[in-house]
Design a protein around this nucleic acid. Sequence first.
DNA 1: CCCTGATTCGC
DNA 2: GCGAATCAGG
Length: 171
Amino acid sequence: MEWTAEAIEMLQALWAEGHSTAEIGRRMGISKNAVVGKAHRLNLSARPSPIRREDSEARAADTPRPAPAPRVAARPAAAAVESAPTPSPAAPPPRPVTAPPVAQVTRPAPPPPVVRAFPRVGARSCCWPIGEPGTPDFRFCTAEATSGRPYCAEHAAIAYVKARDRREDAA
DNA sequence: CCCTGATTCGC
DNA sequence: GCGAATCAGG
């Protein structure tokens, strides 16, 4: 693979659009390894990795436990329905009266409702890039994005390809 | 087995 | 520098 300036820009553009490395590879006709390798070399490796490579033995001795990870539940509406915890049909365990008297003094403050009032989720502009990123005439598509998609209908058709058989397309 | 990204290492 | 092989997790 000859990494021309154009190729690198395309890689960065697709990378910035959030495509997977394999997807970028497909769109550019190269392997995902090439994409990952180049991205790594370009120091733009910033995508959330599914895995964590760290030796667990070295840090086993001193586990500082930096943060208790206060599970901030965001996402108000979407995709929160199906993961609802099943309420146990059995009766709730009666609190034994022998509970330590000072145990419940410090009640954790109830988390404030994280209801972000989204301005309008369904009516944003298409974010399909027009032109070469970094050049003065670079802009984004001004059409209205379809609901739930970052692109307008026209560009969504280009951006989203059929799940199978997407070996090559309009790149 | 499909996917994901990360790292290694011969070239 | 490159990327296939490999690793590691979902």
